[in-house]
Design a protein around this nucleic acid. Structure first.
Length: 736
DNA sequence: CTAGGGTTAG
């Protein structure tokens, strides 16, 4: 092949009138044909330079050909394309369109719109039928309803109102902005619909969650004798997937066969996904084995399918078998572990990914692994991931920001969470909400509320999650009035209909302060059926305020909804113990023993230099067990001499945090962890502990005293919130 | 020489 490094013969800039025209000139044709054969930006630039030298670049057709190549070739950059464009003296309409298209595909679709406006101002051209699909695509990517509507108006005014290509892009635009109504209006007004019109509308309905409407349209399409194609079937299948209707999915399979629709790769993948999501990995496996062509999506779908079933070995074997391991396949396994409560396994896979040479972690990997760190309270690992993100110069999008804030908050480092929050430019509703949640779990209710107002000032609309977090903040800080106010304002002021979680929060807020009657009234007035969590909140309040009668009612309501909820009976028996009703306690215990009810075992964990140490109650499996217990003895002695008396009534309770047989309060897992923390970390470091259940009263008191006696900050995360112990006090102000 | 619709992971 010709190489471009050998200089081509230069041409005179102005050909004389008798000479062949630029286009017909053989040498010029050769130069233009070289454009398509460039395999690197360097080569393209050489052709560009040559064309400038010979003057060929100043021929509109030739320049646009070079320009098109610069926008389309995989090695090129938009930056370069833009420079080429700016050199073209008088770009023609084709060239303008090409630039608009290039940006509509890019990460900055907004540029498309800007260039379109520039074209209107600077060029003598009007948009043609090709221009509109490009700018509508840009509006779609921007998800800006208003922008698209302006274009729609222009379409009508420029009398392109019956161009099916343009109208189809408008259907897609309106549907992806969530405005199915407008999309449908465009659809019905198309005089001569083609298959793309139907497909756009069907998949629009599916994406908008209107599965029935999508299927109805599919039937209508059939009734009008329109032949569906593979894309139609992908839409119908994805509706079926969302409805989890395996029978219907199987019907679609036979429909496809009967109608001779070709199962292309995407359709096969959609079918795989349908089988997996509708609960038949078996069918998926059969199809997968039959597929001649497979891509990353096929493999990922299978990995995800097995991992979600808990068949991690099979999932792992699929991961190992992927011909070209890409990040997405790893992510499928990592996120499956993370979401199924196996954060340590997720991090183990992450470590393997880092060692593998075939793939690099991406944004999604980080989101999943940060969530695992948050679950575990593994801050060293989390920080290390944060460093990795920085090293890769990865830009923090809102998703990643949210994950980082969540990780730092749940690992007890609220300051770092705030640092991340303040450092980013873009904050969507999830970023704000996660920061509010972080402040809430650390007992900084006022700050959480302040942040809510700042979010409002920033014109970010709160959603249901935001309100759950705000109400949580009120609950953790005992802000009854504020809680009531937010709850009452939710719907009328912010347009968020209270869900069952919000009701549960309110019951918690009222109940905790002792407003038990009001809480009961509140439950009775609920317009939706109270869930277990609502009764659970009431039961918890009954424990604090020692209301046996109400506790019994709440407990039976709770067990009716959630018969397997062991915590309810444990809580009730503790209320009996606290109020001295020992007969009831033993009766309950018997009942629990008979039904084989076992409570979750309590554990506490602590991370030291990236390694997680986990303790059960009375645990002596740790290598440093001896040292830990002698430290514990020292602590007990110190506490005694400082006047601390173990609350005997607590000893007799069936402590909900620990196993029945291990009632010895001094052997609670959090105490072991604290003792371990004292001997394994430097005095300047806070001791960070994560506990799976709620901290018990005695441990809470002891932790406060230790923080004073040893002058140590202790950060304990329990099931509900954080406790910052320092100088003999706790951030929860004993309100938890 | 340019155009519209589709599958996975949070």
């Amino acid at each position: 092949m010709e190489t471009l490094s050998t200089p081509l013969v230069s041409l005179p800039i102005q050909a004389n009138p008798e000479a062949p025209t630029i286009k017909n000139n053989n040498r010029n044709r050769l130069v233009l044909s070289l454009i398509d054969r460039c395999i690197s930006l360097k080569q393209l630039k050489q052709v560009h330079a040559h064309m400038l030298r010979t003057g060929l670049f100043f021929d509109a057709y030739s320049a646009s050909k070079l320009f098109t190549a610069s926008t389309l070739s995989p090695f090129s950059s938009l930056e370069y394309a833009r420079k080429v464009f700016d050199e073209i003296p008088e770009p023609n309409l084709y060239t303008w369109n090409t630039l608009i298209r290039a940006y509509s595909w890019s990460l900055e679709p907004g540029e498309s719109v800007k260039i379109f406006l520039r074209m209107l101002c600077e060029s003598p051209y009007f948009p043609n039928k090709f221009t509109f699909p490009f700018i509508i695509k840009a509006a779609t990517k921007l998800s800006r309803l208003g922008v698209g509507q302006v274009f729609h108006g222009l379409v009508v005014k420029s009398s392109f109102g019956d161009d099916v290509f343009i109208l189809n892009s408008l259907i897609h635009f309106y549907a992806s902005c969530g405005n199915l109504d407008f999309a449908y209006r465009v659809f019905v007004r198309i005089a001569v619909k083609d298959v793309v019109s139907w497909n756009s509308m069907i998949s629009g309905f599916v994406q908008g969650g209107c599965f029935d409407k999508a299927l109805e349209l599919f039937r209508e399409m059939e009734a009008e004798n329109f032949k569906p194609n593979a894309v139609t079937m992908v839409g119908v299948l994805s509706a079926c997937t969302k409805m989890k209707d395996l029978e219907f999915g199987r019907w679609i399979r036979s429909y496809i066969e009967q109608n001779g629709i070709k199962m292309d790769l995407t359709l096969s993948n959609a079918m795989l996904d349908m089988y997996v999501k509708c609960g038949s990995v078996e069918d998926a496996k059969i199809l997968f084995d039959k597929m001649e062509e497979k891509d990353i999506v096929s493999w990922t779908t299978m990995i995800d399918g097995y991992a979600k079933l808990g068949e991690y070995d099979v999932a792992k074997s699929f991961l190992d078998a992927v011909p070209r391991q890409e990040t997405a396949t790893w992510n499928a396994l990592i996120s499956a572990y993370d979401q199924n409560g196996k954060p340590q396994e997720a991090l183990a896979i992450f470590r393997q990914l880092q060692l593998s040479k075939n793939a690099n972690p991406d944004e999604l990997t980080f989101v999943s692994t940060l969530s695992s760190c948050a679950q575990l309270g593994a801050m060293d690992v989390g920080e290390w991931i944060h460093e990795n993100i920085k090293k890769q110069r990865m830009k923090l999008n809102c998703h990643l920001t949210t994950s980082l804030i969540d990780m730092y908050s749940k690992c007890g480092n609220l300051e770092k969470a705030l640092d991340v929050f303040h450092s980013v430019e873009r904050r969507d509703v999830f970023v704000w909400s996660s920061m509010i949640a972080g402040l809430a779990m650390h007992g900084r209710g006022r700050a959480a509320i302040d942040l809510f107002y700042r979010m409002h000032e920033a014109k970010v609309k709160p959603n249901a999650v935001t309100f759950t977090n705000v109400l949580c903040a009120c609950s953790h800080s005992g802000l009854v009035e504020e809680g009531r106010m937010f709850f009452n304002q939710m719907e009328p002021v912010y347009g968020v209909v209270p869900g069952v979680k919000h009701y549960a929060c309110m019951v918690d807020i009222l109940g905790r302060t002792g407003l038990l009657e009001e809480a009961v009234e509140f439950i009775e007035k609920m317009p939706i059926t109270p869930s277990g969590s609502v009764w659970g909140a009431l039961l918890g309040a009954c424990k604090i305020h020692e209301n046996v009668e109400l506790a019994e009612q709440a407990c039976s309501q709770l067990l009716e909804l959630e018969p397997e909820n062991d915590g309810a009976l444990v809580l009730l028996s503790n209320i009996y113990a606290k109020t001295g009703k020992w007969d009831n306690v033993s009766e309950l215990r018997k009942r629990m023993r008979v039904s084989g009810l076992q409570k979750e075992r309590g554990w506490s964990s602590m991370e030291v230099n990236g390694t997680l140490h986990k303790f059960l109650a009375a645990d002596n499996s740790h290598p440093l067990s001896k040292e830990i217990y002698s430290k514990l003895d020292e602590i007990v002695a110190k506490l005694k001499s400082s006047g601390h008396v173990t609350n005997k009534s607590l000893l007799l309770q069936l402590i909900d945090e620990e196993d029945m047989k291990e009632q010895a309060l001094n052997l609670h897992s959090e105490k072991l962890a604290i003792a371990f923390g004292l001997i394994s970390t430097s005095p300047s470091q806070p001791i960070r502990i994560v506990k799976n259940l709620r901290v018990c009263g005695d441990c809470h008191t002891v932790a406060k005293l230790i923080s004073k006696l040893y002058n140590r900050e202790i950060l304990l995360r329990d099931r509900y919130r954080f406790h910052h112990f320092s100088g003999g006090n706790c951030s929860c102000m004993d309100y938890w």
